[in-house]
Design a protein around this nucleic acid. Structure first.
Lengths: 148, 148
DNA sequence: TCTAATAGTTGCAGTATGCAAGTAAAAATA
DNA sequence: TATTTTTACTTGCATACTGCAACTATTAGA
């Protein structure tokens, strides 16, 4: 059998590059991490800072500063929770939603292009396999903290 | 069909975390990027700086400094090429080779653990699929520069 | 009521990043 | 051969990312 690490090394590198392609929307140039933050805020209902930071396994202090930047860029809004005054609820601004949606579309377009190099059967097999892999990783003790 | 981006987003994040686990060998604490550099130097025959930087899609100036650090740590050796005096040939020191081998083993062990959550058939399907995906990405125009 | 725990922020110091501009050597051109 | 261009790599600089320690404010627990 092939060397697993070789395969994963290449895969990881390439996914990183694919990710990089996708963070310029109009005038906005955001970082990969920031695009992941927008993505997760969009996906969850009234998430707190802790929640998103934990999902993305970003240190809360780093995360706090990233959010400050995104707020300044008018992509994210921070609303104090009425239930617990310590908590800040995160949401996307109209502009933030626009950027997130745009990134989502272009990422899916990129992925479609990648998948166009496979036939229909391979496409389904690969997607199904990635889901299996994701599940296996979520069960793993060594990898990977985010508790989706 | 499931949302591709969702799957890839989770996958990318998890692979990143998996990668993070793996960079402490004895007293050495190296970064993910540095482990990738060691990996590629080990894999190629008498590679130049340009070559490795290009494979990893790291800016040459950043790469130059990373190499300086790794040389200081006595993990990498830089030898001027006799054929072209502009070129520096990279190689691993004994210690560098030791560290690279160690990382390789622990990464493979981590991957084995992840794969232990799959059955034999799934394991083979997933590995084969990842290879297909890697090939598709290498053919893609939008992703991903490294020209393995 | 007093103490402990939690959510988030800030200071700081170290590291990573990439553009612009540099050096030195090789290749191309005249 | 002499001159220009290109290539391989390095350094200066300015910016961004990172995480630990220490802080404030609030809530939960004893």
């Amino acid at each position: 059998m092939e060397n697993k690490r070789e395969i994963f090394h290449v895969l990881t590198r390439r996914l990183g590059l694919l990710d990089k392609n996708c963070c310029a929307v109009g005038n906005f140039e955001i970082s990969i991490v920031q695009s992941h933050i927008l993505y997760e805020i969009d996906k969850h209902f009234e998430p707190s800072m802790q929640q998103i930071a934990e999902i993305l396994a970003i240190d809360i202090t780093t995360f706090s500063r990233q959010i400050q930047t995104l707020v300044k860029m008018d992509l994210v809004k921070k609303t104090p929770s009425t239930i617990d005054k310590r908590v800040s609820i995160l949401s996307l601004t109209v502009q933030g939603k626009f950027v997130a949606t745009n990134i989502d579309h272009s990422m899916n377009a990129y992925l479609d292009e990648v998948f166009s190099h496979l036939n229909e059967f391979e496409r389904e097999t690969v997607l199904r396999s990635l889901q299996l892999l994701n599940e296996a990783m979520s069960k793993s003790s060594v990898c990977c903290k985010p508790l989706y």
